[in-house]
Design a protein around this nucleic acid. Structure first.
Lengths: 220, 220
DNA sequence: ATAAATTGAATTGTTGAACAATAAAGCTTT
DNA sequence: AAAGCTTTATTGTTCAACAATTCAATTTAT
């Protein structure tokens, strides 16, 4: 008897899409940078056509910007984008949390993300702190039990990492919020969804202010 | 002096993407149908490579489904999809309406959509009624002033039209709701956002039930 | 000297053909 | 009827070519 679960065959185009996406959120490719078809195709050892298919997907996700006849560029998240992203985050995360029931499996994932972040903080591994922090908020969105909402949030989230990348200070951006997250999940576990929601909103407002301020100091 | 605003150069790939998208929401291509690269490319008079780029975009939008080595198929919205879509709609539309301020320009667009729908009803042009109805709900989402949220909603909306297409009864699906929409925008204009939100939620619950029931009778 | 027009190189847009890899269908053999 | 094997059609991927466009450099004109 064979285990029949390959279901997700990975085509070269998809693999390459993931690879470029990773380079984008990891900061190997920086906002504003132009991605030459010929150069990138050679570097990834794929053909231009396959690369172009990947470009279309990532453009649709908001990570790349396509300017016809000029090329594709890594999206530059300006202040308008950041404001919009945080507006969406408050819009989605707060409501997902507000109408969650405390026994939802997502709660466990929130708890785990907080603990992971705390362990990473002890070793001062701020990149891992950031990753765990993102996982925490993804878990919040999953409380809504909507695949489409979760996918959408994943895109928003990746776009925000692009913005964080240019700031290059994960400690500053994530460390202060670990305890707030702990408090949020604690409220939720105890059934105090109202207080959890208020705490989350406070978090998001404060985080937005921090990011915008840092952004204002830098590129404008 | 030349009017310098072409800004959005339309590449052949984009044009073709729009064309296929139109065929999808107009029901010329039906859920489950396989789209042969060779056949469709020839029919549209474009190359396979260009068509494949369009496929990636539309797959990302949820209108097509890509099964590696098997081809791309028009998405078949099953009950799970419909439930998810309506969950997202309640999630987004209700909150957008609840926190809207009555003088928002979106309000005017809501009013105009209602009037367009009413005029179309008098002529029994049910397809136009449906289009106006969709415009009404897009206008609700625009009350949130978030480009990303509006784009996301547009995708959800197109996916829902795919599901409506198989039911083929625009009168049944849209006509009963014109007056509810009129009532919603009226409440909003008079500043009674709470009542407007309740009415909207009622609308969405009722519409979902109708669609699911019709779906259950058909393909299941 | 500045602005406009021209040229030319580099890049993207698009195509067609080719071949490899995979899946579906048909056929055989048990 | 099930398992194994061919055959066939389709997708995955590459390559080379050319058209169309941008951009910078150069020339020309004011």
């Amino acid at each position: 008897m064979k285990t029949e679960l390959p279901d997700h065959v990975r085509t070269l185009g998809e693999i390459v899409t993931e690879e470029i996406r990773r380079k984008l959120v990891d900061g190997e490719l920086v906002p504003g940078q132009r991605l030459s078809e010929a150069a990138l195709a050679e570097s990834l050892k794929i053909s231009r056509n396959t690369l172009r298919e990947a470009f279309r997907v990532l453009t649709q996700e908001g990570l790349l910007k396509h300017e016809p006849n000029r090329g594709v560029f890594v999206s530059v998240p300006d202040m308008g984008s950041i404001i919009d992203i945080y507006r969406v985050r408050r819009f989605i995360e707060c409501q997902a949390l507000a109408q969650a029931y405390p026994r939802h499996p997502g709660t466990r994932r929130m708890r785990e993300a907080v603990e992971t972040a705390q362990r990473a903080r002890e070793v001062e591994d701020w990149v891992s702190v950031g990753t765990a922090n993102m996982a925490f908020h993804s878990a919040i969105v999953e409380l809504a039990d909507s695949p489409r909402l979760s996918t959408f949030y994943a895109h928003i989230s990746a776009e925000l990492r692009l913005a964080f990348g240019v700031l290059k200070d994960p400690e500053f951006l994530h460390a202060p919020y670990i305890d707030m997250n702990a408090s949020i999940v604690h409220h939720l576990e105890e059934g105090r969804t109202d207080e959890a929601t208020v705490a989350l909103e406070t978090y998001l407002v404060q985080s937005e202010r921090t990011v915008l301020a840092a952004y204002g100091r830098r590129g404008g």
